[in-house]
Design a binder for these strands. Structure first.
Lengths: 243, 243
DNA sequence: GCAAAAGTGTTGTCCTTACACCCATGC
DNA sequence: GCATGGGTGTAAGGACAACACTTTTGC
């Protein structure tokens, strides 16, 4: 970066333009790892790859970033184009950049993670090109999308333990059993039912709706909803060095 | 690396190329937030901005990503070019992409965080263009580098509580007081000395060197070093939903 | 009445916190 | 001998883990 040599009596703007002009240019995309939850299984939304290279392989939902669009906007746009939603959770996870990760040339991609409620949001899945798939560790995807998906899953595991994101995956009203199933599916572990209930009740943001499940072949459970207002108070305190 | 590319019929390759050809191209850089620690203060390595727009402002160490280089490699290269080091800690934190964050045109940048030991690594700071600065919250930087630095600091705060990264900032042999000062500087808090010691001794990876400090105007403390082998055993267990 | 899951408490252990005094060294 | 920080222990409270029985509903 030898800008010192360019300190000429030209306008600053021009110098800056010249400098950036020397940088290699590349295509930039976003890829969304859209998680859902149904039938007690963690799902991910995939589309048939648009390249013959990867025919018969599924891929994440992605698209190019426009010239005047930041990455967040691009991710929201992709999500909106595919699902019709724009008020959902979305967060940047990591950028992937292996020089030949894309067969069509140099493309770097920012991975975004999104959590949506499958039941509440009817997608245009009738296109048959867009489908919910079980999220398993040995899923096979196009490009480097397996790596991306794996990163997002690990990110999600951490994240739902520090922040009540999981609620984005559930219907507005849910039973504690559903909530626990969700955690067990994401964390891939079994949790003690009583301790799980205690834990969530002690954090004061589950609100009893007074309703109960009505289509189960056993004693119905109470339905709760997430009270955002109550949640916005303690927020976490840090300090306690964990390792 | 990419066997798919090799085995593809030409036509597919062409289609892929055409597709990527329609994507807007942009410059991509990496910016390194390089933390150091000396005089009991958290430092960050900055360089005089290379653009007149930001004359008198300091900026992070960054550079363009080459056409055939991935982001990690670019970050290591920047670090090596500036500090001569290539075996240091380095991790991608987040990618920043506001369309007009750079006055010279569309440039997106991947922020990397690095921790290096100031004392052990003599930089070419005699250039006087490259200096260690105290890391404070009201630091003023060029471009959107304040935002980037702030993100990296928050990231670092979380990270040193989950992983013993802090040792990268300390000399090979250090006293517990130095270690505590480091944590206090990064977390911006005071910690109880006795509890801090207990905590770190109970995690079994501090190794007593048998040596003591020798230039302090008070009772010298023992010097320890970090035992990587011992550390690589428990690793953290997860599960315990925190919020 | 039986299958299936909901709902509920207690106890022991461990981790975290708060807190005060003596010790070793340099000057 | 005094100033400075090094070094240590304990007790209380809170969080977590383990664990079994009764209740309600559908069939």
């Amino acid at each position: 970066m030898n800008e010192a040599e360019i300190t000429l009596p030209i306008s600053n703007k021009k110098i800056a333009n010249q400098l950036v002009g020397t940088y290699p240019k590349m295509a930039v995309t976003v890829d969304c790892v859209i998680f859902g939850f149904s039938n007690n299984e963690l799902k991910v939304l995939l589309i048939k790859s648009d390249l013959n290279n990867f025919k018969d392989k599924w891929s994440l939902l992605g698209n190019a970033v426009e010239a005047n669009e930041d990455l967040d906007d691009a991710a929201y746009r992709v999500l909106r184009e595919r699902t019709g939603l724009d008020d959902v959770f979305l967060e940047q996870v990591k950028t992937f950049s292996k020089p030949n990760r894309h067969p069509g040339g140099r493309v770097i991609t920012a991975a975004y993670c999104s959590l949506i409620n499958i039941a509440h949001h009817q997608l245009k899945t009738f296109e048959n090109e867009l489908q919910w798939h079980n999220f398993s560790n040995d899923i096979t995807l196009a490009f480097d999308h397996e790596e991306i998906a794996k990163n997002c899953h690990i990110w999600l595991q951490k994240r739902i333990q520090e922040h009540p994101l999981g609620f984005n995956l559930l219907p507005e009203k849910f039973s504690l059993r559903e909530l626990q199933n969700l955690y067990e599916a994401i964390l891939r572990t079994k949790l003690d039912r009583r301790n799980f209930r205690k834990k969530f009740f002690s954090m004061d943001f589950l609100e009893d709706t007074g309703e109960i499940e009505d289509d189960v072949p056993h004693r119905p459970g109470r339905l709760y909803k997430f009270n955002f207002k109550k949640y916005e108070k303690d927020k976490r305190k840090w300090i306690g060095i964990d390792f």
